[in-house]
Amino acid sequence: MSEMTSNPLQFKALHGLQKSDQVCPKHHVNMVYMAGHKPFCLVCSRESIDKKDEERAKRMKTRFERFHTIEVLKRDSILDDDDLKQATFKNFEPNSEEAKRNLGLARHIAGEYLDPKTKYNTVLTGLPGRGKSHLALSMLKAVNKHSQVPMACLFVSVNKLMGLIRSSFGYPDSKYTEASMIELCANADLLVLDDLGSEASFKKQTSEASEFVQRVLFGILNERRRTIITTNLQSNQLADIYNPKLLSRMYKGVNGHIIKFTEATPDKREVDF
């Protein structure tokens, strides 16, 4: 804070102040003036400076809170499909009764996540192309928009996350190091891990997830209680990929919070040749 702000009486230009016969109607003290200028109240001036400082501090605090909460979703999310960025509940188009029910369930669960005390994971599972990722991102956007307590929501494609971390090997200054990515994901108030299992299905020799992948996922999920997971796989298939300790972290509180798509919902991305 400047010398003038911390103590206006020490500002050199004020040394020539003269006492006025006019009295401040608010503070009942004599005003002061400089030659050629209107009289003013020193107490009012002090209050005005304090108010501006307080407003500036509030703006800085709001900016800081937005940077670490609301802006996280847009700034730090890792998507493998840019078209998904536009996803909302409003533009989700159900193409079956099952999809309608799942939309309603996703809205309901998002409403429960508005309360920071809500501690359970959600799994969206089923066949590809049914809208699981669309609903998951819509849930985050709804929480960001409607939560009275600002929350850091984050959407992360698991397969792309692993690729970014691998690209940081040998580059300790990279923003995508294993430690920094685990910290980013672990600290989110509400996290989506998208397309879980795809990082293992791309391997030719085996469908089992690598030790590296399981280590990263365990680091993220171990302390979390609020995670939304999307996967094309069923529970028995996930059991073939991940070790039981990791699965237990994934399944925290998921009973009653599973959104499942079946063949009853057509593939939205299906193309006829």
Rank of each mutant, 00 (worst) to 15 (best):
A87C: 06
K74F: 03
E211I: 14
E97V: 12
D53Q: 14
V216G: 11
F40L: 02
L196H: 05
P244F: 10
I228D: 09
D80W: 04
L140I: 04
T5N: 15
L137S: 03
N102V: 08
Q148L: 13
V123A: 01
T227N: 12
S198H: 02
L161S: 10
E98D: 00
K85H: 09
K245E: 07
S207F: 00
S248A: 14
F261M: 10
D194W: 01
I229T: 12
V143N: 05
D50F: 09
A142S: 07
S157V: 03
F212P: 11
S248R: 07
L9V: 00
I49Y: 00
A142P: 00
H27W: 05
S45N: 08
V149F: 03
H134T: 05
Q86T: 15
R101N: 08
E223H: 10
D173S: 13
V192M: 13
P116Q: 04
T69K: 10
E199G: 08
F155R: 05
S2A: 07
Q205T: 11
K252W: 12
A264D: 14
F11I: 02
R249A: 13
V149Q: 12
F92T: 04
L84C: 07
E263H: 10
G126M: 03
H257P: 11
P150H: 11
S133P: 02
S168P: 12
P116M: 04
N91F: 06
Y171L: 08
D173V: 02
V156G: 05
A136K: 00
K58C: 00
A106W: 05
M181S: 07
N236A: 07
E208L: 11
R63S: 15
S157L: 06
N30W: 00
A57W: 01
G104S: 10
P8F: 15
K252E: 12
A136H: 01
S147M: 01
V216H: 12
A136S: 09
D81I: 07
E3V: 02
A152H: 04
C24L: 03
T177R: 03
R215M: 11
Q10V: 10
D195P: 05
Y251A: 05
M139L: 02
Q10N: 12
L190W: 13
E263T: 11
T122V: 15
I109M: 06
K268Q: 13
E65N: 11
C185M: 09
L73A: 03
E178C: 13
T5A: 15
K38Q: 14
E112G: 00
L161E: 02
H15Q: 14
R66S: 10
F202K: 14
P25D: 01
E223K: 12
L137N: 01
F155H: 11
T69M: 09
S167E: 15
N243D: 15
G170D: 14
K203G: 13
F89C: 09
R226P: 11
V216F: 11
G131C: 02
T69R: 05
K119E: 02
G256I: 07
A188N: 08
P94S: 07
L84Y: 04
S248W: 09
M60Q: 12
R130T: 15
A87I: 05
E55K: 08
R225Y: 08
L73E: 02
H37T: 06
M181P: 01
Y242K: 05
S167Y: 13
L164H: 13
K145H: 08
E71R: 12
H68F: 10
G129S: 05
D50N: 15
R166Q: 15
